[in-house]
Structures are given as C-alpha cells and as structure tokens.
C-alpha cells in the first residue's frame, strides 16, 4: 500500500515540477473554453450540457498525452529496471501510476469548476446534471487513463504510446456514431462498447450501475493489459 502511494506521489510530483502539467491544463482550458463559450451565449441556456459533450473527444487526446510518459519514459531511460528491482509488485507500479494520472485529470477538471460558478451567477443552474457530469467525467477520465497507461506500457517511444492511446480512446468515443457500419445483429453489442452514450447517461444525471460498470471494466481491462505487457517484458 505504501509503495502504491509513494509511486503515485512521485509521478504526480513529476507532472507538476515539469512544464507538462501546466501546458496540458492550458491547452485543455483553451480548447474547452473556446468551444463551450463560443456558442454558450448564442444558445442562451444556463446549463453545462455542451461542455460535457465536448469532453470525450477532448479527453481522447489530452489523456494519452498525459499518460504517454508513465511507462515509455522509464523504458527509454532504463529506470524501469530500477523500479522493478525495488520491493514492489507489478500491480503496485500500475496502480500507483494510474492513481497519479487519475488525480492529475482530477486537477484538470478542478480547474473548470469556475464555469458552473459563473453560469450559476447568470441564471438558474440545475446542479444535479452538473454533479453527474463531473462524476461521469472522472469515470471517463479514469477509463481513458487506464487505456493510456496500457498504450504506454507497450513501447519505449512516447509518440507511439500517444498515438496508440489516442486511437483507442477516439475509437471508443466515435463508436456510437459509427453504428451504421455494423450489421444489425451486432448493433447492441457494439453500442455497448461506445463510451459516449454511457458518459452522456451519467452526465444527464442518471446514475445507472450499468454505465458505472462499463467505465470500471475499461479501467480493469486497460490496467490488466498493462500488467500483461509488463510480464511479457521479462
């Protein structure tokens, strides 16, 4: 347990002592802020539905950018060998790194909390969907973090890790819009794998165990994949 916390703390500190964290937060706020507020006053509704609907697409490349270094950098500089010969298990390492990525996404989301506060000042804001939205965003963030960690564990090249991670996350995001490509028999199954509908359900304020289960399964599968990739390496 102490090993998990130590690893998570180190990785989180690494984000904030290097410029990565600030660059990622700035880019994220710029994109989300522009796309959201560009139409916000035209639509003239005091809710955050448009904000949340942006998140899957933007997270698809912001999160792999955050997670790409978690394993690839260690593999590249060789510190992976040091980490693995310390008294820690594979799962300590994976969960520690996952927690760091997850908390970092939490910090990114925290920086958007000014939006609901501003909007609440402009008119009547229904807080239920906002809270649901943030809960969904954390689940989505966790799932994509796990996918990004899996991609990072595959290669020592951070760019490849980023591209692989983005492709999987973007695939999950777009799946619900591409259902017309699949034969009717498979529709229900394929639709289940899409991240967007599950996310939107929660973002509407409907907390359904099926949606939560979906995100938790993605996390488990992603982290398990990373574990397999680690075992493959020795």
């Amino acid at each position: 347990m102490i090993q998990i916390v130590t690893i998570a703390r180190k990785e989180l500190k690494d984000y904030f002592i290097s410029p990565i964290a600030y660059i990622v937060i700035a880019i994220f706020l710029l994109l989300v802020g522009w796309f959201f507020f560009a139409t916000f006053f035209l639509v003239g509704q005091t809710n955050m539905r448009n904000f949340f609907s942006l998140l899957p697409a933007i997270f698809s490349f912001v999160i792999p950018a955050v997670t790409m270094r978690l394993f690839s950098e260690e593999l590249n500089i060789g510190s992976y060998e040091i980490l693995l010969t310390l008294p820690v298990t594979f799962n300590d390492i994976i969960i520690g790194k996952f927690l760091a990525g997850f908390l970092f996404i939490g910090a990114v989301l925290l920086s958007t909390l000014s939006y609901p506060l501003i909007i609440a000042g402009l008119g009547d804001l229904a807080w239920g969907p906002v809270i649901g939205g943030y809960l969904g965003a954390m689940l989505l963030g966790g799932a994509f973090t796990a996918v990004g960690i899996f991609a990072s564990s595959l290669t020592r090249n951070q760019i490849i890790a980023f591209i692989v991670g983005t492709m999987i996350c973007f695939g999950l995001t777009l799946l619900n819009n591409m259902l017309f490509l699949f034969p009717g028999v498979l529709l229900k199954t394929v639709a289940y794998f899409g991240a967007t509908t599950h996310f939107e359900n929660i973002a509407k304020g409907i907390i359904d165990s099926r949606d939560i289960l979906y995100f938790v399964s993605i996390m488990v599968v992603g982290l398990f994949g990373a574990n397999l990739a680690m075992q493959e390496k020795n």
């Binding site: 690494d14 002592i17 060789g78 008294p87």
Partner: peptide, 19 residues
Amino acid sequence: LQIKRLIGYLPESAPLYHN
C-alpha cells in the same frame, strides 16, 4: 518480493530518474 527487499541493486550505468 522478499528477495528484492534483501538486495540493493545498481544496474549498469545507473539509469536513475533524471528529472
């Protein structure tokens, strides 16, 4: 895990966390 606790290891060319 127990063995790793007993051993202090310096890999070739000491690839420490350089940041």
